[in-house]
């Protein structure tokens, strides 16, 4: 059994409503839970899940209800997200899968780390279009014509390293948005942003920036 499938099975079996979880073949597992239809999840060990990989999994496991990027550092390409959502396949990390089983929304769940912040931006009337380039990178066009590239950082405590790593990996952004509601960017993180040429902020500040007031 692949290592990530083993870990996933162990943590899924701990979920209160789950009555069984087994490896059916390759990276695919079947989950049975009280009062819920059986669910098939594919547990990927990939660091990067792009469109080709997502489509490949779907072809290999047509019965799949959920694609799980088990590595904490896994990054999802926007095109892969759009494909999966279009096919009514849930996507996200291990925590997203276990929550989705409990909430009985395996087929529609999306990465729980980014779910609320993605929705927050989409709800703003001043945002006219959004290109979700990657799970955590949104290029937004605003009603007044401005364009902003926003990168989300979800660490408990956004650090200078988290800011630099985001910039190195995804290129220049205008804003590094600390999406952890309990987090607070450290002084060094704010300074690292200033050195690179972006602002590190939380939602209250970002909201003001987007609304242009």
């Amino acid at each position: 059994m692949n290592w990530q499938v083993g870990y996933a099975l162990k943590s899924i079996q701990e979920v209160r409503v789950v009555t069984g979880a087994e490896n059916i073949r390759g990276d695919a597992i079947k989950i049975t839970a009280h009062g819920r239809p059986d669910a098939v999840a594919v547990i990927s060990e990939a660091d990067f899940i792009d469109l080709a990989l997502a489509m490949g999994y779907h072809q290999q496991y047509p019965e799949m209800h959920f694609l799980c990027g088990y590595r904490k550092g896994a990054v999802w390409e926007g095109a892969a997200i759009r494909y999966l959502e279009g096919q009514k396949i849930g996507w996200g990390n291990g925590g997203t899968l276990t929550s989705a089983i409990q909430d009985d929304n395996v087929k529609t769940a999306s990465h729980k780390e980014f779910f609320f912040s993605d929705r927050l931006i989409r709800q703003l009337r001043c945002v006219t279009s959004i290109d979700r380039e990657f799970d955590r990178i949104h290029s937004v066009t605003l009603a007044d014509g401005r364009k902003l590239r926003i990168g989300m950082v979800r660490e408990y405590e956004p650090t200078a390293e988290a800011v630099r790593a985001l910039w190195d990996r995804f290129g220049a952004v205008d804003v590094v948005w600390n999406i952890n509601p309990n987090g607070k960017p450290t002084q060094k993180a704010i300074e690292a942003g200033e050195e690179l040429g972006c602002k590190v902020m939380k939602w209250d500040e970002l909201q003001v920036l987007l609304k242009g007031r």
Binding site: K72, G94, E157, A160, K188
Partner: peptide
């Protein structure tokens, strides 16, 4: 292994009391 590693500078560790 499913590792989740958080990197902090010494002043950050002090500032956050992590």
């Amino acid at each position: 292994l499913p590792l989740d590693v958080l990197y902090m500078l010494p002043p950050e560790a002090e500032e956050t009391g992590f």
